[in-house]
């Protein structure tokens, strides 16, 4: 296993506020890594530290074999960042934006031309390269933001909520592009997101809350551990069914005219359905989702 980012006992305080309280995790090379947490959990602080924007109070962070705080200039050469809020210039065209930001990486004029060309192709914005950034749609802007982050062929791409604020269709196409990057181009992706269906596609997930890591694992492990499957039924006579369930010591919750019974696995629904035969008008067996797992871990909804 090849660790491209290794975070050891990382602490960060702002005066009295202890925002990050000694966290440990690592990111594997070439994988899609999801870093989740509710707002104010220490998520942004951690990313800002790893991206060389913030200093840290204690601990050690190794990025691609380089020590953070000592080799920052070299680390910056190897990371690309897509910030949550845009950092490009509205009054400049896509190409002007890329040319100016691309000049920070010490490329020769020819190398820069090639880099811009490649970034435009990978993000599929070549046809609109002469349009001003400020006139683009949300989805197009995101593509330019990603193109900017890819200019210097970074080994690690940080994406801070890349799809927030996009309509569902645009979100899907931006997401497909991100998948293409780490599947076909071997870029390690460090992602934060509010969308659990995106986190569910990650190779590994770390959840932070109150400055501490509260869960980590693959999405499947997290779902198994922190979410439950459930049987949803629509009773014909609610009182009768309620009594039947209580008599059989089955736990349940009610949501309007539906009753929800947590089960360990989907197969457990068969005996319950036999028991309730003739008493219900409809049923549904639901698998646990990343959303459930997230709420199970932090006790908070992701989207506020």
């Amino acid at each position: 296993m090849d660790k491209i980012i290794d975070v050891l006992n990382l602490h960060k305080s702002y005066g009295e506020v202890h925002a990050v309280k000694g966290i440990d995790f690592y990111v594997e090379k070439g994988k899609l890594f999801a870093f989740l947490g509710p707002n104010g959990a220490g998520k942004s602080t951690t990313i800002n530290v790893i991206c060389t924007l913030l200093s840290y109070s204690e601990g050690e962070v190794i990025v691609d074999g380089l020590k953070l705080g000592i080799d920052d200039a070299l680390i910056r050469q190897r990371i690309g960042i897509v910030f949550q809020d845009s950092v490009l210039d509205n009054l400049l065209t896509i190409e002007e934006n890329l040319r100016i930001r691309g000049s920070f990486y010490g490329l020769s004029p020819n190398e820069l031309d090639t880099a811009i060309e490649n970034a435009l192709i990978v993000t599929d914005i070549k046809e609109i390269k002469n349009r001003r950034y400020g006139q683009l749609s949300g989805g197009q802007r995101r593509r330019v933001d990603i193109a900017r982050a890819l200019l210097h062929n970074p080994k690690i791409l940080f994406l801070d909520e890349p799809t927030t604020g996009l309509d569902p269709q645009t979100r899907k196409s931006v997401w497909r592009m991100i998948e293409n990057l780490y599947i076909n181009h071997g870029v390690t992706v460090f992602l934060t997101t509010h969308y659990m269906e995106e986190a569910a596609k990650a190779d590994y997930v770390v959840v932070i809350d109150n400055g501490e890591i509260v869960a980590k694992g693959t999405p499947i492990e997290l779902k198994e551990k922190y979410s439950t499957d459930s049987l949803q039924i629509k009773p014909i006579d609610k009182k009768k069914v309620t009594q039947l369930l209580i008599d059989n010591k089955v736990a349940f919750t009610e949501i309007s005219d539906l009753m929800i019974i947590p089960i360990d696995s989907t197969m457990d629904s068969i005996p319950l359905l036999k028991l309730l035969d003739q008493q219900i008008s409809a049923f549904q067996v639901l698998n646990g989702t990343m959303d459930d797992a997230f709420i199970g871990i932090t006790g908070k909804e992701m989207r506020e």
């Binding site: 924007l53 070299l74 910056r76 960042i81 910030f83 950092v87 490009l88 210039d89 930001r101 920070f104």
Partner: peptide, 13 residues
Amino acid sequence: SRKINRDFETAPI
């Protein structure tokens, strides 16, 4: 004010 400086400060410049 628009935090565009973050993009410069995370580049090797």
